[in-house]
């Protein structure tokens, strides 16, 4: 075997090893590297009361309700499988809207309401001109589902 071929085989074996390690590492991080938890995960008991966490989901249609104090809103975050009521006091991003994705920092309260202290709008992968701007029904927020 020529040295060139030896080096090629060595490099490919090393590359396969490193790629394998990368895949194993990435899959081990599956839960840890998630930026937010979904309502279904919260319902499945992955959120402890009072523990700081992020909740991500769609804002359910017709669910945004402004409270009497004028600065607090309540809405329902859903992922199609479960939904969690959210309460937030403050200013939301311009793109925060019903039928649209959002990510909230906060914690679960004992009564099952998620109290957020910050809200981010999540944009989806669709870009279109304004005259076509109707939301398709089959929106998905959580990738791979």
């Amino acid at each position: 075997m020529k040295p060139k071929h030896q080096r090629l085989i060595l490099a490919l074996v090393a590359l396969a090893g490193v790629a394998g390690a990368g895949v194993l590492g990435a899959s081990a991080l599956r839960d840890e590297a998630a930026y937010f938890r979904t309502p279904a995960e919260v319902k499945a008991g992955k959120a402890e009361v009072g523990e700081p966490m992020r909740l991500g989901g769609m804002v359910a249609a017709g669910s945004i309700a402004r409270q009497a104090d004028g600065v607090t809103i309540r809405f329902v975050a859903t992922d199609g499988k479960a939904s969690v009521p959210v309460q937030f006091t403050g200013i939301v991003p311009d793109l925060f809207a019903e039928n649209s994705g959002m990510v909230a920092d906060g914690r679960m309260r004992a009564d099952g309401v998620f109290v957020a202290d910050r809200i981010l709008a999540k944009h989806d992968e669709r870009y279109m001109p304004p005259q076509m701007g109707e939301m398709p029904k089959n929106m998905k927020l959580v990738p791979g589902e």
Partner: peptide, 9 residues
């Protein structure tokens, strides 16, 4: 795709 992220798919 692997992880929930703020960045869109």
């Amino acid at each position: 795709v692997w992880w929930n992220s703020l960045h869109q798919g």
